[in-house]
């Protein structure tokens, strides 16, 4: 593992340990009250979900046109993290919506497209698991189409009149709310980077194991 891993892991843990304090000290949003605080974890998970999808797509692209298995391993790791962060987004979102909108789920463009993007990443993992030989390229193709969905999710709130708050909300936040938000986002992205490295490491070790078995057969 790279040298930066352990210090970064400790830093990440500390950031998460501090985050509840920052969130608790942030002021109440005037209309939504307490439940608005879900946002400090919902937005970072959603951002990480989209970034992870893009990283998976770019890594797949480089794998497809370069053929380096390293990129393939990154893509796999990113896909698994896309599923994780997508799941967290799709759980924390409805928990907020239950209070703010009165319903758990709304068939609105942003929600639907996020769900769709998440399903693509689940399909990616299914292909990797059950696709058999040649599934690496198949999955890479899938990741590209999944990546094409990401900008759609991002702009959807600004183009359609949806019930979901628009992206323009974020820069208008007062500093007292912005600090915990950016702090959490940084913590999430750090966690994502660490897990991406660790998960890719797992694939590297698996590849090494395969090589060892091959050399044993010879």
């Amino acid at each position: 593992m790279p040298k930066w891993f352990t210090p970064a892991a400790i830093l990440c843990g500390l950031m998460f340990a501090v985050s509840p304090l920052l969130i608790a000290n942030a002021p109440y949003e005037s209309t939504m009250g307490l439940v608005q605080k879900i946002f400090y974890f919902h937005l970072p998970s959603a951002m990480t979900f989209l970034i992870s999808g893009v990283i998976c797509g770019i890594a797949s692209l480089r794998f497809l046109f370069g053929g380096d298995p390293r990129h393939d391993r990154t893509a796999w790791a990113a896909a698994e993290l896309t599923v994780l962060f997508g799941l967290l987004t799709l759980i924390t979102g409805p928990l907020w919506a239950r209070k703010a909108w009165g319903v758990w789920w709304q068939w609105d463009v942003r929600l639907t497209s996020s769900l769709m993007g998440w399903m693509v990443s689940v399909a990616y993992l299914l292909v990797r698991k059950y696709g058999g030989p040649g599934s690496d390229k198949l999955a890479a193709g899938l990741a590209l189409f999944g990546m094409a969905n990401v900008p759609f999710v991002y702009i959807s709130v600004n183009y359609w009149r949806t019930i979901h708050p628009a992206t323009s909300v974020v820069p208008t936040l007062p500093a007292s709310m912005g600090l915990p938000l950016w702090w959490c986002l940084a913590a999430f992205l750090l966690f994502f980077t660490l897990m991406l490295r660790l998960r890719a490491r797992l694939e590297e070790q698996r590849a090494r194991l395969d090589d060892l078995y091959l050399s044993l057969d010879e």
């Binding site: 998460f16 879900i38 919902h42 924390t92 928990l95």
Partner: peptide, 15 residues
């Protein structure tokens, strides 16, 4: 709101 909030944070940490 508290149960919703606690569930949301718990889900993230458990995840």
């Amino acid at each position: 709101a508290a149960p919703l909030l606690i569930t949301a944070y718990a889900v993230v940490f458990v995840g």
